[in-house]
């Protein structure tokens, strides 16, 4: 088991290095000379040369990549061109909103999607099943910002149940925090629910055909118990895999959803950085999200042995 974790992490490292290389190359190719930006309008060519030297910009490409990687390993992602604030500090300030949003989405989506998928598989072919499957195609087709405006319009403007926009940190009270996160989280859940419900139904359909499910039923266990304990546990590996892969969709969704609901998170930071062409910030955010995505999927791979003891490495 431990050897497996090490091996699996070992295969992730080269991919991470490759991702870092891609993202570094992007910044390297970015138009504009960082030295000229620091030096300002009055700089002489000698000043420029000196600054380039001190920044290491005149060194070969691979040497610059090595320097940059070393700094990244020490959590130094450079400074924003516009504010001069370290990128890690910018990300840190906005971490809470985005993490709250992502965790909330994950919880709502799984709580809605898994029961829907299980019931759809149990009642396969019924009207309920067909409605869920129709929703799965539909939910996957509606872009996240359309869902966001629709939900905000119905629940915030028309019904006035929830605030339209904004974010309140958790430290200022759990209820206001939850109130403002609910709509954005539901928005991002929409497509995610469709994805998870679909795979849950498919795997449950397979598992429900197994002999042990019939045995459990035959010995008189309640259907609910059989469905959610016996069957769901054995269907969990593909479901958890899809939940992990869907995180990429959530990260993309967060960038847009935070704009729709005016949430000061990392997604909003990304959008502001693009509009100002703040390359170090864009680079830092993309790198961080990609690493988080890879780490989550690494953890999920490792968790298979806990979910299904038949899987041994």
């Amino acid at each position: 088991m431990f050897a497996y974790i090490l091996r699996r992490a070992g295969t992730t490292l080269p991919v991470m290095a490759m991702v870092a290389f891609f993202i570094f190359s992007l910044l390297y190719l970015a138009p504009g000379d960082p030295a000229a930006m620091i030096a300002g309008d009055q700089a002489t060519p000698e000043d420029l040369a000196r600054i380039r030297e001190s920044l290491g910009l005149s060194r070969p490409f691979l040497a610059q990549f090595a320097d940059w990687s070393w700094r990244v390993l020490h959590f130094d992602l450079g400074k924003s061109i516009f504010t001069g604030t370290p990128v890690t500090a910018l990300i840190g300030q906005r971490m809470e909103a985005t993490v709250s949003l992502l965790v909330m989405t994950l919880i709502t989506a799984v709580l809605i999607a898994v029961p829907l998928g299980v019931i759809a598989a149990w009642k396969a072919g019924s009207l309920f099943d067909r409605a869920i499957m129709a929703f799965a195609v539909f939910g996957f087709s509606v872009p996240v910002f359309a869902v966001g405006y629709m939900l905000a319009w119905v629940f915030a403007l028309q019904m006035q149940w929830l605030p339209v926009q904004g974010y309140v940190p958790l430290s200022e009270g759990a209820w206001p925090w939850l109130q403002r996160l609910l709509l954005p989280a539901l928005t991002m859940s929409f497509g995610y629910v469709a994805l998870i419900a679909r795979i849950t139904r498919t795997t449950m359909l397979e598992v429900l055909q197994q002999d042990y499910v019939r045995t459990a039923r035959a010995k008189g266990l309640a259907s609910r118990g059989v469905l959610f304990v016996h069957a769901l546990k054995n269907a969990s590996v593909p479901i958890v895999t899809v939940i992990g892969l869907g995180i990429a969709m959530l990260i993309g969704g967060a960038v847009v959803t935070e704009s729709v609901f005016a949430i000061p998170g990392i997604g909003r930071l990304t959008v502001d950085a693009i509009l100002r062409r703040d390359y170090p910030v864009i680079q830092g955010v993309v790198l961080m999200f990609s690493f988080v995505y890879m780490l989550i999927n690494l953890l999920i791979d490792v968790s298979y042995t806990l979910l299904d003891p038949r899987i041994r490495y």
């Binding site: 992007l26 990260i251 693009i274 864009i282 990609s290 995505y293």
Partner: peptide
């Protein structure tokens, strides 16, 4: 290809569009 797939597609497109 694995590395490219590890970057969420929208972020990769954003990074490329920034250039």
């Amino acid at each position: 290809m694995d590395a490219l797939m590890s970057i969420p597609p929208i972020l990769l497109a954003i990074a490329l569009m920034a250039l």
